[in-house]
Structures are given as structure tokens and as C-alpha cells.
Design a protein around this nucleic acid. Sequence first.
DNA 1: TTGCTTACACGAAACGTTTCGAATAGAACC
DNA 2: GGTTCTATTCGAAACGTTTCGTGTAAGCAA
Lengths: 334, 334
Amino acid sequence: MATIKDVAKAAGVAISTASAAINRSAPVSEEVLAKVAEAVRRIGYVPHAAARSLRSGRSNLIGLVVPNIANPWCGAVAREVENACFASGYTSVVYSTGQDAARESQVLEMMRLQRVAGMIVIPTRSDAAHGAALVNQIHVPTVLLDMQVEGLPFDVIKTDNVEAGRLATEHLLALGHRRIGIIVGIPGLATSDDRLAGYRKAHTAAGVEVDEELIVTGGFDQDIAHRAALELLQREARPTAIIAISNMMTIGLLFALRKLKLAVPADISIVGIDDLEFSAILTPQPTAVATPILPMARLAIARLLGQIEAKQAPAGKIEVHRPTLIVRDSTARH
Amino acid sequence: MATIKDVAKAAGVAISTASAAINRSAPVSEEVLAKVAEAVRRIGYVPHAAARSLRSGRSNLIGLVVPNIANPWCGAVAREVENACFASGYTSVVYSTGQDAARESQVLEMMRLQRVAGMIVIPTRSDAAHGAALVNQIHVPTVLLDMQVEGLPFDVIKTDNVEAGRLATEHLLALGHRRIGIIVGIPGLATSDDRLAGYRKAHTAAGVEVDEELIVTGGFDQDIAHRAALELLQREARPTAIIAISNMMTIGLLFALRKLKLAVPADISIVGIDDLEFSAILTPQPTAVATPILPMARLAIARLLGQIEAKQAPAGKIEVHRPTLIVRDSTARH
DNA sequence: TTGCTTACACGAAACGTTTCGAATAGAACC
DNA sequence: GGTTCTATTCGAAACGTTTCGTGTAAGCAA
């Protein structure tokens, strides 16, 4: 494959001159500029990113660490990141953690191997122990998306998860529901815990006592949430409404309802947190608390690129975006 | 950041010995092996992928070029590719083309810049002109997924799209439908053309004439398909059944039906090509022709890695996977 | 013309690896 | 004890860039 040496030879200039012409990194005469450009075109020269990054010490790789790239929610983030990277001459490399801390550690190691210039990370855990482990593994500008990690000094872009849980619950309480089930994810995970906290907060505000029995753990997967929902729905004293705290969990819940032939919202009301892109074609259309994932993703990558280019340290700033309740047909008065 | 030089110094050996010990690329005594391993651990050394690939001429990057990573279908492919890459010490870099040839060209240029070891490409076009353009841009082992490109000498892993179109149509014809609409994607694109060909084939086999008016072009996007579906559905002489040839198009179609308050399958029957993962929670559950995307993706990456490691040339083999009809509730006798 | 500046072009070093031929040391053989 | 072999270790070159200190010719002021 053609190298810059070939370009230099073809253009009849020194290698360093060719480099300067290609990168416009030093003054070069119009004449030489044209000769080099022509040579590049003729030879079909494309610089070698690895060599470039090795010498310059600057990488053009941006790491994206998500729970699961097959999840459309993550896909949307990836798309935004990819777009922004492309526009700025970076290339994104994506890895999925499967929401598993050990795997996350391996993935971060890979990122280190590739010497990414910076990372956007949706973490697997949010506790201090996890933060302590991670702080030694991350040596590049990083922006945490969707979730804060205790003790990690990076910028965070997240949703107000307490508010998200509160909005969903408040809506159901206002409709007269008093036995509201909630399927949470992994305990100890901030997104999950916070949304549950919002659930409690709404209850307190309404003066309704929380029945701890109605809080079930479902994991963030569709399958596990599905099983948890089945269990919850088949109890003697069934809740009159259920909240699922993530998109995949909502699908699992809807599947369980379908299986048990329960009518929504006649038999039971449903609220999902995180909206489903295809909710318009569901029957009934699910009431949901939407989180502004696209703007958040865009902001995250913009922040990251800013930190990389300006070599400015992260402010450790936590930016919280407001979720919004979208009332549709899956919730009714009780 | 620590380099192999630091490791060598810490272990009290030469750089080349350290390299040999780390990579097990040459015989090294047990004693030195242990010393080097210990040094690596203590210093926290992680090799520099760029330097390594520069010197060795081998890259550990695998390129994945898809229409749109936010599309769950592509996400599923990405996940499989990522998994296989991870297991073999490669890292995948994903780029979306937006089904646009110009963008695809830019993306391939990026892949070239990164000197990927190989690529899995879901092409944007399949005609010979496109093949002629692409053949000059691709210089690494490549496997084409989902679609063949005329004149490109690579292995292809695809579905039998004619059969997919035929299965969907045959099913509807067997149910007594005679006016079957079909929303196709971009004309000239093999997946689209072939599925349409299957539609014609089924008609011929059943001795039913095709009404060309019922073939509308919708693009692969949800929005465009949605508009095309609306147009088709609001005609004087409405078809009694409609086929959508991709997952996103099916969503667009379902949305249009919902908007027009048409009952499925009472008013009209629906078949989608490519199954929707969440079809279980739709009402009615859509009859679909499923394509084995996961096995195909797994096969593609396995093939590619094989070609890269064995340095064996692609056989130019076209592997065709069978689609299967899954009858659910969206189709009824006419 | 001389001296000084400006504008550009050049050559060589360096980035962190791998690779390969050469060096060394001990073991085995005669 | 010298020679040959084997097993390991070493040193230096090379991969394709960027970067930086020098060199040089033209332009300008004196």
C-alpha cells in the first residue's frame, strides 16, 4: 500500500514537505501543494492511522461502552456518537458489557489497548467499590452517560431518574391506583434505585404506604423482566397497575400480560420508563416516561470531543435531563 | 504510559526478550517468562495496538459497515460480530452508511485509514456499476452480508430473497387474496428486487396476473414506507393484503393502518419480511417471513476471521440461507 | 552590494512495537 | 580441551508517520 514516501517521490518533494502539504501543518507553496495533492490522488494514498497516532501521540479512536449494542436504545446512542465522530475525523469503537462488571473491565482493557482518545461509558455499576475499581482502569477523557459512578471524577450526562419514577407513579396514583407494582432492575444500580426512589417519593407525597411486596426485581433483560412480571401478575392479590423501568423490561411486561390474557388498561394499567420507538403501533399505546436519549448522547459526545481537543480536564459536572410523561392508552382510572 | 521498554528494564531483560515473553513468539526460559509477567503486572503494561500493528503489518481491527446501527436488525449483527471479534482478540469498528452510496464510499475510506484487517459489509447498492466503484476501494478480506454486489469477488452470506418474497405472496394467494400490494425498497437493490421477483413468481405460479399499480416504492425507512403505505391504502381500489419487505417498512405500514383505523386482518391482511423481535406484543401479531440473521452474522464473521488468519483468498462463494414463513394473526382468508 | 528577514523546503530523529540475524553460554561429544 | 550443537538472549533495523531544528533562496532595506 502506498505510503507518504511514495507520495513524496511522485511529487518530487521531501517526505516532511509532503506531510506538511497533506496536513496543512506548515506553510507550503501553492505549487507544492498542488503537486502533492495530485500525487496523492494519482497514487491513491491514504494515511496510515496507526503510524500517525503512534508518532503524534494522538489517537483518533473514540470508545463507546454500552450495555448491549443490540438494544435499540444503545443503537441510537451509537448512531449519534458515530455521526459526531465522523464529522470530526474520529472513529468510534463500540463494545458491549452485557451489564456485567467483569466484562466491562475486559472491555475497558481493550479500549486501553487501542489507546482510544476518549470514551463514553454507560457503566455497569454505580457504587463506590465499582468506582474505585474503574478509576485505575480509565486514563483518558471520559464522559459517563445515563449513570453516575460513585468516586469517578468525570462529567456525567443523565436523566433525573428519581423524577422519572416519580412521574410514572404519580400519574397512576392520580388515577386512583393504590396497589402499584414495579419491576426494578439490578439493586445497587443507580438508574434502577433512583427510579424506585421516585416511586417511593410519589407514594409518600400522596400519603399512600408502599407495599414492599409489590417491588420485584427483574434485571434489565426482557426475559428476566418477563418472568418477574408473570410472578407478580399471578399473585392472589394482583396489583392494579405496574411500572417497568426500562424499555426491554416494558416489552417483557407486555409479553407477560399478553400471555395471561389480561386486558390493558381494563384489567391493569401499565407505565414504562424509557419510551419505545414503535409505541405508535402497539395496542394499547403504552403510557411512558420518555428520557431525552438523543440530546443526551449528542451532548455527551460534544463534551467529550471538547475535552479531548481542548485538553481541558472534565469538570466532574453532573448534567441532569428532565424526563417527560407521555400519557397514552395503557393507563386508566381505577 | 508504560512501554515495553519499561517492562524490559523492570524485568532486567532486553526489549526483544520481553516482547518474545509477552507474545510467546519465541522460546523463553521459565525464569524470564515469570520475571516479565511480574513486571507487566507491576507496571500495568498494556501493549500499544497501533505500534504493534504498524510494525507487524497486521491489524486487529475488523470493520463492520451497516445501513444504520440504530436499526435493531443491524444492532443484532453488530453484537454477534463484536462477540466473535472479542473472542479472537480483534476489535470491531462500526460505521453506518444510511443506505447512501456516497456515504458508504466515505465510510470505506475511513476503514482504509484505520487499516482494518477485514470487513463485513452490508452494501448500499448491488448493481455492477457500484461493484466497479467498490472494487477499487476494498483491499482487504471482506464478506458481504445480506446482499451480493455484481462484480465484487467476495464471499456472500445472504437470504434467499426471491423465496422470501414468494413465501409471503404464496401465503396470501393461498388465502384467496388477489389484489396484493407490496411496498418495495430502493429499485436496483438486490434485496428489494429479489423479494419483488418472488412476489411475481408466486403470482405466475398461481396463474394470477400482477397489477403493477399495486407495487409501490417506499425506501427502507419507516417514514417513507409509512407514506407509501398511506398512499396505497387510500386508493379507490384498495388492495386486500399488503406485503412490506423489511422490518422498518413493516412498522411504517402498521403505523399507516393504525392511522386509517383499518382492522387487521378483517379489513386487510399484512405480511412482513424480516421478523420483528417484539412481534409477540403486537396486536395482531404479524405474520412474517423470518430471515436467520443471527446465524448469518455468525457465519459471516467466522468466514472473515478464517480468511484473515489463514490468508486464504475468498472463494467468492455465495451462501444462501432459507427464510421461513411464520403464520400469525395478521393474515386471514379473503 | 551587503546584511537581515521571510518563506519555504529539507533531513533526521522519534513514537512503541516486532523481527531477524548474531552473540553467548552451557552441554555434549570426540 | 577444543569443537559442535542447542537453547536462549540480545541488538538493531524497520514499520509510516510527525515534528523540529537547519538550510537556502528570494525579497527588502540600507
